[in-house]
Amino acid sequence: MAAIIECNNITHYYGNRLIYKDLNFSVERGKILGLLGKNGTGKTTIINILNGYLKPYSGECRLLGEDMRSLSIETKSKVGLLLEGHVQHSYFNIVQIEKFYSRFFKDWKSEPYWDLMDKLKVTRKQKISTMSCGQRSQVALGLILAQDPELLILDDFSMGLDPGYRRLFVDYLKEYVTATNKTVFLTSHIIQDMEHLIDETMILDYGKLLLHKPTHEILDNFKRYKLSDDVRFKLDSDDVIQNVEHFKTHTEFYSFDPMDKVKQALQSRSIDTQTLVYESLTLEDAFIGLTGKY
């Protein structure tokens, strides 16, 4: 089956600053892919490129099999877009905005929108500009759900949401996507709650894609290892060991590989592995393990 999103060899610069070189990835139908990265790693840039709002220096993306530089109207109606900050036309009230969007989509489904709106403590005549960020996020989500798109693109949806709204958003989205076999591409710089939601994780660092793996694979295999001594050693670029941090009483590092392979790697450097222990990680820990704290 063809991928819903396919990006090949995307290279982009802002001025002379390289954002990424030869970025490749694809998303298959029914998957929820999370693009995680710190601020300024180019998450929104990818969203912009995907939707044809940015001309990349080189490379191409295909959305539902179509070139992103000239998306057809049909394709656009199959893509639900949530802009950073849950931006919506703020001069509308919730009745007006539903009326406006419904005219553009053949398969407009009002029920999920009104379901969500009924949960909000807003009047029908309240303008969106007077709503809180959380309320706005629900309006934006409701509109996307009513649009019933095949692909949902959500840019930094967790930004500005308090935990309640964030959980509400995640739960609602998860339930909806699982029930309808939708594909989701989302970005976030807040990793909390994300492991419940995303099937695949892409982690972006400055200038490159660090990793693209199924989320469960990361949670199952990516471990933090501890040695109870401050042991100094050098890392190779393709080492099984990553992100070594030294403390007064111990040394920490991360690895995708199982215990015995890590031991081998240490022993090859003649390091005593008797005190080696590991612990499982949350996605957030894993993210920090991969990208570092800075």
Binding site: K55, P56, Y57, G59, E60, R69
Partner: peptide
């Protein structure tokens, strides 16, 4: 200058 041109429909 790139080969990529975004088209408006």
């Amino acid at each position: 200058e790139t080969r990529n041109v975004i088209q408006l429909k």
